[in-house]
Amino acid sequence: MPGITREEVAHLARLARLELKPEELEHFAGQLDDIIGAVARVSEVADQDVPPTSHPLPLTNVMRPDEVRPSLTPEQALSGAPAQEQQRFKVPQILGEE
């Protein structure tokens, strides 16, 4: 059924923010195709009137009271930052929406 194209793989890579190399695109196209082909059997049950399970345990309404807990110190928060400035995470120029 599937037949995943190189273009589709490239699209997925953009969605997933992976700068895949050309040879990887090729390689993954084949492998994803195989895997999807093998697991597509699950759609046999697509029409069945069965509720989907998102959580293995039937828990509901797990909540916490609205009470302040100690935060990390800014030093701790920034301890792993590849770059920082003015107690903020420093990142390259953001292209996104203005």
Binding site: S43, V50, T53, S54, P56
Partner: peptide, 14 residues
Amino acid sequence: AYYGSAQKVRTLIT
């Protein structure tokens, strides 16, 4: 077809 069906399979296995 994929994620949704897989979750249904999950119900059947349970």
